[in-house]
Design a binder for these strands. Structure first.
Lengths: 233, 233
DNA sequence: GGGTACGATAGAACGGCGTTCGATAGAGAT
DNA sequence: ATCTCTATCGAACGCCGTTCTATCGTACCC
């Protein structure tokens, strides 16, 4: 029986993966073209192996996304550990939140999978802890602390989701710039009836060419101001 | 040539749709079992027609989701129009936000599609306007007004996304209750090292059996407190 | 060194999805 | 009667996540 075991030039090599390489390459795909680009087939090709092999490391695509997310959060955690705690707990909260948001700006897809399953996302849990520790220095009840951190987390996730909307492909191609894309909206808005839409007209100039990080910082600072008020500090 | 035109008993009837019926049935599917249940095939079956017919009304699934979302926001808008403006603009902001969140509690999938494309989502734009009008009565700059409404919108969307995570099927089936599902997490958390996770231990009792609307209300009130402070009112 | 157990890999197939194509039925105008 | 435009639909296409089954290669045992 001719079992052709061609170890010669043409012979297919078997690929050899690792959890690390799987997650790293998954993140590369996500970074390059967003969640829709991360398919098992694309990932397998990048790893130089077969599709089914990936299932040895993760049980499903959801788990892959959860683990990939936690993988990059690990890096964020390192950045956050480098932050020196200051006198003001609220300033610490702000610093940690901004570090997290910086990571989301670079990888807008993060928002959709962050904190989805702490069983698998150990780093996300650690980050949650990090975010909560400054509140222990504030005069708050346990419930208030819980709500405060939830609120900050909500603001981060909410902002991330705004960012994470995959732009209509023409922006990704670079065919039209982001500013032009925004202006298309504002142009429509400006044509609305001034009496029926006084607020939209009031802020349309602000929306045009607005900066995402300014928007996040403003939302975060409003929440932090509320927390500070509550703590009586 | 025998073009068999069986108008007899067995003859298939043609279905007759309308934008209204398409969106209504789409919402029914979303309500019954979440976004994963809304497929063109399931929708066609419900409408008693063919798959391709739906494409006469919407150009893609994204547009279907956008329009379905805007459809139900229309109902929310009616609720909001029924709210009498009070003396305090911030109380009005709170009332409108809560009305919106009430709708999201019933339909957790809303958060993922809300405010995605104001071209198609006219009602969402109207709601944005409604949310902004109270800020016109506050002493704020245009930019501050823009950021204030964005912040509120972010809190709503962020909370909705938390809610919108499709539970792991066993909860949907009713096999395990929501409380039991939460307790499974907290049980793991309680086993963590107390020194490494002081905050998690501090709030684990709060997390166990927590109420989503309390969490939202707390986050919203923190943001509103920040806005009130900014307006010097 | 032959046999065996197991960690790891992979091709092929399955069913379901969004989407497209081409055909066609019905209603109204010419 | 014919033409036109709106509306409908079955069948097919290509891609997706997932599963099945068969293998390869190494470490270990006797």
């Amino acid at each position: 029986m001719p079992r052709h075991q061609d170890r010669a030039a043409g012979g297919r090599r078997r690929a050899s993966h690792s959890m690390e390489s799987v997650l790293t390459e998954a993140v590369v795909l996500l970074d390059e073209a967003g969640p829709s680009a991360l398919t098992f087939r694309a990932l397998a090709q990048r790893l130089g192996g077969g599709v089914a092999s990936i299932y040895w490391y993760v049980a499903s695509k959801d788990e892959l996304l959860d683990r990939a997310t936690d993988h990059v959060i690990g890096g964020v955690l390192a950045d956050i550990d480098a932050i020196e705690p200051g006198d003001d707990p609220i300033d610490d909260l702000r610093a940690i939140s901004l570090a997290l948001f910086d990571a989301i700006l670079v990888r807008p897809w993060l928002g959709n999978y962050f904190m989805r399953n702490t069983d698998v996302q150990g780093n996300c849990l650690r980050l949650y802890e990090k975010l909560g520790q400054p509140t222990l220095r504030l005069k708050l009840t346990a419930r208030q602390r819980f709500h405060a951190v939830s609120a900050i987390s909500t603001v981060v996730v909410g902002s991330a989701v705004d960012l994470g909307q995959e732009p209509p492909a023409e922006v990704l191609d670079g065919a039209v710039g982001r500013d032009e894309f925004l202006s298309r909206f504002t142009a429509t808005w400006r044509e609305l009836d001034r009496d029926a839409y006084p607020f939209v007209h009031e802020i349309v100039d602000e929306f045009d060419g607005h900066d995402d990080i300014d928007q996040f910082r403003a939302a975060l600072d409003l929440t932090l101001a509320g927390i500070r008020l509550q703590a009586g500090a």
